[in-house]
Amino acid sequence: MNAADPIIRIEDVTKYFGSFKALDRVNLEVAAGEKVVVLGPSGSGKSTLLRTINQLETINSGSIYIDGRDIASPEEDINQVRMELGMVFQSFNLFRHKSVLENLTLAPIKLKKMARDRAEELGLSLLDKVGLRDRAHHYPIQLSGGQQQRVAIARALAMEPKIMLFDEPTSALDPEMINEVLEVMVTLAREGMTMVVVTHEMGFAREVADQVVFMDEGAIVEMAPPEVFFENPEHPRSQAFLQQIL
């Protein structure tokens, strides 16, 4: 594989739910270290696209390459691929029966056979990073939404993924908690993480995105750097969308 090759390559991907076409011949390339923000109206296929990248949704046609590996092919061990793809959900999905620290150490210990001490050390340093070291022994239920989401980010990072996928990470949060999560994401972006982020936070998109992808009805309608997309959107759909939200 060439260094300039994209770390994510989505080629002509189509996805049906029954007879409903949720993704319509989508093409997208993401280079290592690049940050892509996906925008679009509700139901346009943003989550579906994100979830095909780690195969939480299977695809009907086309291909997806992660690091040059064709992940939809039956020969690939999808679990191996997923270890390199961190995912953060709108609803946090922390393991409710595990403490904060255990949420972070479970996968490294079980999947990477990391020694417990080492995993806890890593976990605590990640909790430091998201500002929650003092909550290591709390349970998810005892945390605010913003705190839970920061733990969820740390949990994904504990597997030391190459790529982080975010599906509306702040949409379930009270407004006053949105920033603490966005700050963590900005830090992560600065450190050079490859990120694909579905969000409605336009400030974040402007500040962090290298490329903004605009989706409508299962297709990518427009793709441009944020300066261009927000100032001079080309497509009428993008224009209408931006007018509505700004």
């Binding site: 780690n54 679990n79 995912m87 994904a156």
Partner: peptide
Amino acid sequence: IDFGQTEASLSLGFN
């Protein structure tokens, strides 16, 4: 158990 728990686990690489 909420299906989100399963998805979170799968996304980490658990089978």
